[in-house]
Design a protein around this nucleic acid. Sequence first.
RNA 1: GGUCCCGUAGCUCAAUGGAUAGAGCAACAGCCUUCUAAGCUGUCGGCUGCAGGUUCGACCCCUGCCGGGAUCACCA
Length: 645
Amino acid sequence: MFSANFYFCHSFGRAARKSRDTPLTTAHMSDILQKIQEAVSHSVTALYGEPVDASKVQISPTPPDFTGDYSVVIFPFVKMAKKAPDVVAGEVGNLVREKVSEIKGFNIVKGFLNLELEDACWRNFLQETVGNAHYGRRPANGIKVMVEYSSPNTNKPLHLGHIRNILLGWSCSKILEATGHEIVRSQIVNDRGVAICKSMLSWKKFGEGKTPENSGVKGDHLVGDFYVLFEKKTKEEYDAWQETDAARQVYEAQHKPTQTEAVFFKEFKNKWFNEYSTLGTEVREMLRKWEANDPETIDLWKKMNGWVYQGFDQTYSDLGVSFDKLYYESNTYLLGKDIVEDGLKKGVLFKKEDGSVWIDLTDAGYDQKLVLRADGTSVYITQDLGTAKMRYEDFGCDRFVYVVADEQNYHFQVLFEILKRLEEPYANGLYHLSYGLVELPGGRMKTREGTVVDADDLITEVIRLAEEQSNEQGALAEVPEEQRSENLRKVGLGALKFFITKVHPKKKMIFNPEESVDLQGQTGPYIQYSYVRINGLMQRMAKEGIDLSIANAYDPIQPQEKALLIALHEYPAVLLSAAEAYDPSLVANFCYDLAKKYHKFWHDLSIFSADHAAAKAFRLQLSKCVGQVLQSGMDLLGVDMPERM
RNA sequence: GGUCCCGUAGCUCAAUGGAUAGAGCAACAGCCUUCUAAGCUGUCGGCUGCAGGUUCGACCCCUGCCGGGAUCACCA
């Protein structure tokens, strides 16, 4: 099937540059793709008389089944050349080869010009990369970005959904940082409102003085337990109420003909809570007292939120994430009114007869949206308008990334649109990193059905799985306990974090607690394992005092080695794409691909017992470089590498 | 109903508009006297939801359908 259009051109003019004695003066690998693009551009123009933008020349790694390192897509030039694709490829190939001394030869397959680079290029690339701890990273670009990646409520502990949110945000912030941005990591804590009041009231009525200290329950869980208890007590009250004469009268007077009693009372629950419930009345009273700064209520609120923060801090610390700036809703929920004032002045907003303030976004495909109630109090979006401005004033960031689930897409579209119309200076730098919800095999997680996967439980479980696996292997049997548990932590969390970050953010993901966090195959531990193998090599290398300087005498480079070199060479471009797309999954998939190639290399080729000293040195150097890049890439996902496993 | 997102192997996920759509899991069959087998190799598995269109070339872009989800609050 290849016979008609498959031929090699290796032999053209080889003699002059065949000698290995004098190393080629090559361009740095980082420049070579650009050099090829320019050469193609010039060649096409010279041959066919039409200008071609060098940056538009498509060049990509040659797929493994074909010979070559990089391939140029020739189809775009076929029309201007008025010749068959393979003829064009041959003509362009010859000219490009003359212009770029690093090209050893080329072949043509169905309109693809496959270029093979001199091994010297790759040896040089390895040498200049292996010592470079910053490989792939870019210098500061002067752009300041705030990433808000956690916005928990303080009435219950964090769950699996928060974990995806946190890991995505953390990873994005690391990727942006690596590509030269200055980062401010922020959290907005929803520390006020009716939810926390429910926990407070519940504790006050039924708590019997329980604290995290005297009960041994982690603070956020303790507060969450009282929230659940409140819901339970409310349900009991509601069930009892339904038996009363008052309930009967309400049902008789208000039910629709088609509604059974059960259906009616199910739908009536909110109304009942707001108008009939004793607990409802008490909790509203508590909220009122909070808003009135009642000292006793504020004290309780501070105490219980304090417990929650201790708990959150523990979970954040377990996940290895941190924040530069915390915002609290209790400080921001009144913000935004000045912006509304300003918007009215500018005529962007308008006031209805009742005094409420609105914006009309129907021309942008949205609806009319309330931004301030008639009584002058804020709604959700008012607050976000205010905090946006406050953040800008606090830090002067050029860009703001909100990591929030996709159920709030509409909210952010509207928010950004309003800020644009108000001509806020930061309005064009806003980005909603929207991600799909995490679902269980049976559907969404439901608090009421008790299917919520708790963050702390999950972390404990993945570490337990790692330990179980490790015990089967027995590899850590000799390792001191402290170091052992540290490695197991890294493996367990590596599995969890990789499992979550490898999925494209926009996609909703199915999380099966039984099966999802594998330790084999396309997983975090698979990648960590390749690092551990490399680490073993490095220790032995240090012990034996091996000199890597003869690596440059290695020849010829084997396909398994070339595959690694090409992958390593892609790394900086992967980071750039990931930063531009706010997409950690690109980095995750790159790391997996690199680890896979390394395992193959390990299996196929001997390292310490290589035939020649140069081969040994080269392979060690290559391994070291792979280890560096894997560590660097996984660090951007928040994954630490164990030394042993 | 309007708007937005997602439909790829039994399952979980990949694939800057480019070559024969790839991995892992599950199932089956192999590979440790050798640098850690959490590894490697092989077999099995597909009308990329359907139908058109644009293009030299479409999983990818456009249109229309069909499924699934989100959202359209003076909740956050």
